[in-house]
Nucleic acid binder design. Structure first.
Lengths: 161, 161
DNA sequence: CAATGTTATATATCAAGTTATCGATATGTG
DNA sequence: CACATATCGATAACTTGATATATAACATTG
């Protein structure tokens, strides 16, 4: 069965990258599911941002993640519900709401950094290893490799030391 | 402001590709909006599939687009509402519903192929021109170029002959 | 040939992104 | 100081992807 997005080349690059991104996220989710991490893979970038940059107001969090502000508001509400982040008004400006990791959030991130992220990162690096040349060719290679060996099996194989 | 997805490299490749795909689709939409095409950019792959492969049942359409079947069912219902596609039961198997372009759909696709798709394709090709080397570097270059000159301005500059 | 199983599609629900808009707080100026 | 304007975040409505499940038609088999 012909893969239309692949055949259309540059014309549908956006749709194709979105599709690949979704597949990678879904595969990553399967890796996370095997451990008892019960949050969605899509929430990790927000936690990682707080880890790297420290407490941030909603707007700056949105900027550093490259998504629109309402998306961050929703994610923060969800993570606050789970007790992983908390929100406090800024001292100097009552409009700004500063998001920070809670103790539980901190522990989860530390554990993820130690036990999980390395194996995901290695699996994706393995997926993209030794690629070169034009973008469309690299994308095709990644799709082919992923069809052959899904990401969660690569994460098994490449156990973290 | 640090771009977290970029900093995280392979770990968040899925989120990053999804984000880039969404931006490309949104930019493409802006190109389409300037003409009087009033359908969403995300519907074009389905129309292109019917154009290239001819009438297809829902399931095969889903496979050739690389998306799940319910998504196709919904898109088809929408395009049928607009009078661009029609659905008929297969002769031999009453379960299969064959999707095909209507006269209006055919005309829209022909017009898009002549007037619009080439300029989008050229704009994206321009965006990706002269890239080589590792994937992450190419993605960064595309993000940088897109921030400097959005796709819809590239489509203006590179008028189709 | 009736019962059971399989397949194709539709429907329901959820997730996560978007834009547009509202309310509350800051800010700046006449 | 008061009022107009700007900014921050929340909310609503929509889009489009996903999965799970229901329904209807076909296939198989005892």
């Amino acid at each position: 069965m012909e893969d239309i997005l692949r055949s259309l080349g540059f014309l549908c690059l956006g749709s194709r990258m979105k599709r690949m991104g979704e597949q990678l996220q879904a595969d990553t989710q399967r890796v996370l599911d095997r451990l008892d991490m019960r949050i969605q893979s899509s929430q990790y970038p927000l936690l990682a941002a707080l880890d790297r940059l420290g407490p941030l107001p909603v707007g700056e969090l949105a900027q550093s993640l490259g998504v629109a502000q309402p998306g961050v508001t929703r994610s923060v509400a969800l993570l606050a519900e789970l007790g992983l982040v908390e929100v406090n008004p800024a001292d100097d400006d009552q409009r700004r709401r500063i998001v920070s990791l809670t103790g539980n959030g901190r522990r989860l991130v530390d554990r993820a950094k130690r036990d999980i992220w390395p194996s995901i990162e290695n699996a994706v690096a393995d997926l993209c290893a030794d690629l070169s040349g034009p973008l469309l060719g690299q994308l095709s290679a990644i799709e082919d490799r992923l069809a052959e060996t899904p990401l969660h099996r690569r994460a098994e194989r490449i156990a973290t030391p």
